[in-house]
């Protein structure tokens, strides 16, 4: 067993840090879009809006039932073959599309469950004092559903950050892609990938800390 090249690892840190912003960007844009889509799907499912409901069920089933990598390849290599106008789709766009759809399918189900989980009698109480459906959603249901869904949604966000590493298979040089390039130049694979792993790890740990704080704040109303 050879010794670890610590100097190489330290030198690699600033280089790889330069690619971290792209990784975070992929994840945050993907998360925001996925959240919007997931809320839309959840409301469609809860209200059972005809046609859209059936479409949503099939959409969720497909994107939960197939691997993310297969979906990314479909978007990046597959779609341009069918529709020549889509050849302009670059790796970054394809990654964001894939992450958005894949994770929105999962998140839609947790948001739906959280909405349905709010005690039905509170809905009746809100209606009985003359609230409209919109006021009921905004002021009573969604604040409580958010609290219930938050831990799961944060888990999906963490999962998504790690899933951005698949973008390197579409030729995107984010944290994983950059590490791969550095490692194949230096042949110091262990050193390179352990630096990348620690970076992912630190980002995820920071998020977990944030999640803990948020949960404490949202749980204030429910402790005895």
């Amino acid at each position: 067993m050879g010794a670890l090249d610590v100097d190489y690892m330290l030198g690699l840190v600033p280089v790889l840090l330069g690619y971290l912003p792209l990784t975070l960007q992929l994840a945050s844009v993907g998360m925001v879009l996925a959240l919007i889509l997931a809320c839309l799907f959840a409301v469609i499912r809860v209200l059972r809006i005809p046609v859209l409901n059936q479409f949503t069920i099939i959409f969720i089933s497909f994107f939960r039932g197939t691997p993310l990598l297969v979906q990314l390849f479909l978007f990046y290599y597959g779609l341009p073959q069918l529709f020549s106008a889509l050849t302009v789709i670059d790796g970054i766009t394809a990654t964001i599309m894939g992450l958005t759809m894949h994770f929105s399918a999962y998140m839609a189900e947790s948001i739906r469950a959280a909405i349905v989980g709010v005690d039905r009698s509170q809905t009746e109480a809100a209606l009985s004092i003359g609230m409209t459906n919109g006021q009921l959603m905004r002021r009573i249901i969604l604040p409580q559903a958010t609290r219930v869904a938050l831990p799961t949604l944060m888990n999906y966000f963490i999962d998504m950050i790690k899933a951005t590493s698949l973008a390197f298979t579409l030729g995107v040089t984010e944290l994983m892609g950059a590490t791969q390039k550095e490692a194949s130049g230096s042949f110091l694979y262990f050193e390179a990938f352990i630096v990348a792993a620690v970076m992912y790890w630190i980002v995820v740990e920071m998020l977990s800390w944030l999640q803990g704080n948020l949960e404490t704040r949202l749980n204030k109303a429910y402790s005895r």
Partner: peptide, 15 residues
């Protein structure tokens, strides 16, 4: 608006 309702299980807004 003209009526008010008291529920068997209170049905207070938990938040």
């Amino acid at each position: 608006r003209q009526t008010a309702f008291v529920f068997q299980n209170y049905a207070l807004f938990a938040n």
